[in-house]
Amino acid sequence: MEKITFATQLLQYLITGLTIGSIYAMVALGFIIIYNVTEIINFAQGEFVVLGGLVMVVFHVSAGLPLVIAFPATVVLVMLVGILLDRLAIRPIRKPSVLTLIIATIAASILMKGVAMVIWGKDPFDLQAFSGRDPISFFGAIIQPQYLWVIGFLILITISLSIFFNSTIIGKAMRACADNPDAASLVGIDTKKMILLSFALSAAIGAIAGIIVTPISLMEYDRGVSLAIKGFGAAILGGLGSFPGAILGGLIMGTIESFGAGLISSAYKDAFALIVLLAVLFFKPSGLLGSVEISKMKRF
């Protein structure tokens, strides 16, 4: 094995950082979609990711369905869980305040984790990498093929979401709910349906993140919390409520972690991202791409 150069090391840190950052970005997007429509932080977002990975294991590995069928089936099933979360935990709450709803999502996340533990047990599960595990050499750095899938899916999700929110009636209606729910319902938008849709959409993105990260990192029932924390940090960093902010926040978090671990110390890897987060909030309290005017209108 030949020694690698410093430049190659840096490139490797960047590639790995962007990949992990893409996962954070997807979790952050899930937070933002629900937050924009309901103003609540859905703490069960990490559980969607876990479910995505574990349900995919059932469909793809245990049931032996081909990837192209198992993938959408998993996404649809986790979407159903998202819909159930809204119908069973969020909508029935009498006189909802933002805080009670957030607490309801925490309860739901604990419940989902427990159920996942009963169904799948505590062992980690593996999925086959979509296009093999033979690493690709790129100027001396190594790219696992799955890395490309992760980054590719982030791009795909970004494009789809921007088309959805900018060019479709439903997407525009959801944005209207985000801007002003009272006015939106006055013009005939069914806000309840929009909230339901936001949960379904978030769950779907979470599921996709879970499916594509499992071949890299394995998946077990209690991984949700740590993913949710990272994704939440990314959402705050980018400016809570901003889609480009969430993606940027995720990628920055991942890259900083990676470079911090590689160049300074891996023991304080998590601290570097948090220091940057604090620094950004100190100089720009609304986050990188957030706006102070909008955040003032929000209740949370």
């Binding site: 090391q9 790995t16 992990i20 990260v213 671990a261």
Partner: peptide, 9 residues
Amino acid sequence: QDMTVQLTK
């Protein structure tokens, strides 16, 4: 998720 960075170092 990944320890590539540590190993690269």
